[in-house]
Design a protein around this nucleic acid. Sequence first.
DNA 1: GATCCACGGGAATACACGGATG
DNA 2: CATCCGTGTATTCCCGTGGATC
Length: 390
Amino acid sequence: MDIDARIERRRRRGGEQRLVRDYDALSPVAHLDEPVGRGPVVERLLDHLDPVFDGTLPPNAYVHGPFGAGKSAVVTALFERLAHVSTRSRDAIYTTTRARSSATPRFVYVDLRETSSEFAFYHRVLDALADDPVPEHGVGTEEIRARLHGALDASRMGVVVAVDHVDAPGVDDADLVAWFAGLPSNASWLAVGRRDPADVALCEYTARDIAVDAYQRRVLIDVLMTRASSALARQALGHTLARRIAEWADGNAHDALAALFAAVDHAANAQRDRVREADVTAALADVPHHSVSLGTVFALPENKRLVLRKLVDLDQEDRRSVTATTEAVAADPAVDLSPGTIKRYLYEMAEVGVVERVQTAERMGKGRTPSRVELGFAPTVFRRLYDLRQ
DNA sequence: GATCCACGGGAATACACGGATG
DNA sequence: CATCCGTGTATTCCCGTGGATC
């Protein structure tokens, strides 16, 4: 790196430090402890879960709503808190002599984005319940499942398992039905997904479904302003700009937060300490409208993320075909993967919408026409978040 | 020795096009 | 004209292998 590059890096960092106080609070893939404006949804989930406060289990249920409606935000926050309450009350029972036998059930959150095998599913649940760590290798799926049964049979208290992202690629409804059937009888599940209950085979086994609507514009502006006030310098985001982002995002909090992040990134690069109209304009152009969730992108295996990281830096020429993209990525010394694997990754990621294959109009002499590789997510947001994590 | 899972590699299949054939 | 064939590329699909871990 030459001196100019070093100076440039310092210059940018200076701008960032003035503008961004906390990237974690700004990240579209992070959820807040206290979701904004979703009180009614929390109430309805608590209504559903109410039996747990009498020591019994709620029936199975399905929570559904559109992309970016805050389903995951609410369920993660709620289950985190309930798990805490549950262990506290458990400790209390052990430490007092007037222990009542009706303990609160346990609460486990499972994200199917990063849990895509039967083994991983039971492992995740057991790991959350057991005091000792559960081995990830050397022991078979059946053994893990048996241990889970053992753990739950031994105690009278049951468990409520929130299973988020049931639309995630790699897991289908039939898998889930089988996995759920393999849970002990004193387990209740709460599935979370985007599809209408009528389209979800799982719903044959639910007693209730809970609909979550998209954010209203007013609420979405609140969401943005709250994030801005905890992550950015004072007055860094004006209400008018928040409104513009919210209008554009049309009720989708993921897209709104991604746009905010991109706008902040743009402003920081220009070493400004507040977000301007032009930053928002640039950001809205950067975030694809029907993008895939950045959560999906970051849940990919490490090497696929690495391939994407290289991909976002490629120019148009290197993206003209899958083969060209493969070669460009494979040429990078930081990538230690065979071209065949890189190419397969690209096709697999296209399959789930992380990247998009677009038919090129021009036909080149021989053979089947190639397709261009485009990104299904906001490149600047991905790049920044990726680099922050390394 | 067992187990899970990411990789690698390659076979099988689909598609595009031009030219030959019926 | 409709269909088939050969060649070349794109895409999909499958399975064995090996690292990491217990």
